[in-house]
Nucleic acid binder design. Structure first.
Length: 260
DNA sequence: GGCTTGTCAGATTC
DNA sequence: AGAATCTGACAAGC
């Protein structure tokens, strides 16, 4: 159970040195403030208020994100175990995607949960999300406490090790409520999360916009606020040195309009 | 029609 | 100098 934690800190210190010379902006270097308060997981939820959370703002040209530790290590450990036990991922047709005329198995596992009555389009078919289960409700409630936002839908991605990944994309589905924030909550292995500005793609000579790297730690929350997703792609690249799984939940708001 | 999402190949990094 | 990482090409379909 502690395996990924050890790997995480080892990888982090190594990367911290390497990043001194790399071109990308690494916001985690600014974020080595330890959580000093010793807290009991059971008492936590009771006495927590929104001002408990320490936020770090991540900003670049039209990129506007906020990062915080949403759960203590003990809480996150419990939640991760429950997610691994209770979440049932898509398989078969629903775990494939068509790209340039070819079918591929997606290099990760995914599934959607959400409010009853919602619909969304995925892989060309219209589906209803699975109904909420307790562990997801728990995360959702903590999110509401920390951010003041409520969400009606969550996309869950599971990366079994550093070979599982997701390519560059924007979360700009038509079904999303316009300008609503997306909350990305992570459990398990720490992975690099890379933002890249759309004008920094291809050999555009006027592209001096550096990619932005964030390490998404066990129990962390990354809020992606408008208009980040209009201008910035993001990806979770392969990391050969990661051998343990990561589960990521991106909470969103899907408009009922598109759900008729 | 502009944009996609995965893999692969070649370049680059360390 | 080999492995990991980065980056663009792909030219099909919505």
């Amino acid at each position: 159970m502690d395996k990924f934690v050890i790997k995480k800190s080892a990888a982090k210190s190594k990367r911290g040195l390497k990043d001194e010379s790399s071109g990308s902006t690494d916001f985690n270097k600014l974020d080595e403030e330890p959580r000093t308060k010793k807290r009991n997981a059971d008492q936590d939820t009771f006495h927590l208020t929104s001002d408990h959370f320490t936020w770090k703002r991540i900003q670049a040209e039209n990129l506007n994100c906020d990062y915080t530790s949403l759960f203590s290590k003990n809480e996150a450990d419990d939640i991760f175990q429950q997610l691994e036990k209770d979440i049932v991922y898509f398989s078969g047709n629903l775990s494939q995607v068509m790209v340039y005329g070819k079918w591929h198995n997606v290099p990760r596992k995914q599934v959607m949960y959400g409010d009853e009555g919602l619909h969304y389009t995925f892989s060309g078919i219209t589906l209803s999300p699975k109904p909420w289960i307790p562990v997801l409700v728990h995360i959702k409630e903590r999110l509401q406490l920390a951010t003041g936002h409520s969400f009606n839908f969550v996309l869950i991605n599971r990366y079994k090790d550093g070979n599982d990944h997701i390519g560059e994309h924007r979360d700009d589905e038509k079904e999303l409520v316009p300008q609503s924030p997306i909350a990305s909550v992570s459990f398990g292995a720490c992975r690099d999360f890379i933002f890249r500005h759309k004008d920094a793609r291809c050999k555009n000579p006027m592209c001096h916009i550096q990619p932005v790297k964030v390490e998404l730690a066990h129990g962390s929350l990354l809020m992606m606020n408008y208009p980040t997703n209009v201008y910035w792609y993001h990806s979770l690249p392969v990391r050969k040195k990661v051998f343990s799984p990561r589960v990521n939940l991106t909470f969103r708001n899907i408009s009922l309009e598109s759900s008729k």
